[in-house]
Amino acid sequence: MNRLAVTVAGVTFRNPVITASGACGFGREYNHFYPLSRLGGISVKGMTLRPQEGNLPPRVAETPAGMLNSVGLQNPGVDAFLQDELPWLEKQDTRIIANVAGHTVEDCEEIARRIEGSAVDMIELNISCPNVKQGGAAFGTSCMAAAEVTAAVRRYTTKPLMVKLSPNVTSITEIARAVEAAGADAVSLINTLLGMRIDLRTRRPILRNNVGGLSGPAVFPIAVRMVWQVANAVKIPVVGMGGIATWQDAVEMMMAGASAVQVGAAAFSDPMAPVKIVDGLAEYCADQGIESISEIVGSVHPWE
């Protein structure tokens, strides 16, 4: 009996640790450090309909306990994913989540249509990229736009549909409810928080895009809070992410209400971080006499 197995929107993951989109490419690089079969799954680099070059450099600025990035969804496009990356990824014995990041509703529909017959296990509809001018967070910051794109993709896919939410909104629970009503099977959160750094000497923003998305341990408490709020606002499962770096962080995120977690920037400090989290969760379950890690999901006892 695998204590770590979790089921999200009908998809069973061997453990609740998924590498987050944008942090692990299509999995090939980190496969040098550990077999991808050690993971619950991989959410691949956000893909657009056509290849995209992304923003000019510099695209990264370090911050206390984290980093800003402004990559801007550089990716080879959905067809290259299906042709060049997916056949390899299918052989790695891990769940595959396709992160879909179209510029328009029609783009998102078309990407979902092309993925439909493939071995992809789940779609993660990215309505929250802060680094692109079209699509991205423009979808994720209005309930109406978020619901529209979710409903549109819903019509083109039979795969479980997870929607990745932006924290750069007044009320993330309203967006979560809107995408739930539009047919989402799960939500994942949080994408990065919009931030900025300035070089004192040149008086220029460090990022060529001026602003970028903050990730890393710096955002973890915000992510825990938002996951807790959203888990209490919707009936569909929540996948929690944002600054998770240790197994203790993963447990905390699950107690807040996450059915599974995604790990991103932590791998930049320690490539083995996702696997260490898996091992830590296994030990935690054994120590605590927990039969199934799902028992802890949403188990926080909030103060009255």
Partner: peptide, 25 residues
């Protein structure tokens, strides 16, 4: 270039290049 992962996964350390007459990051 400023880097994060260092292994080719995160794509932050972009540089402008030309190959076969086409510009690519």
């Amino acid at each position: 270039q400023r880097m994060a992962c260092g292994v080719g996964a995160c794509l932050v350390c972009a540089c402008r290049t030309v190959k076969n007459g086409e510009e690519h990051l």
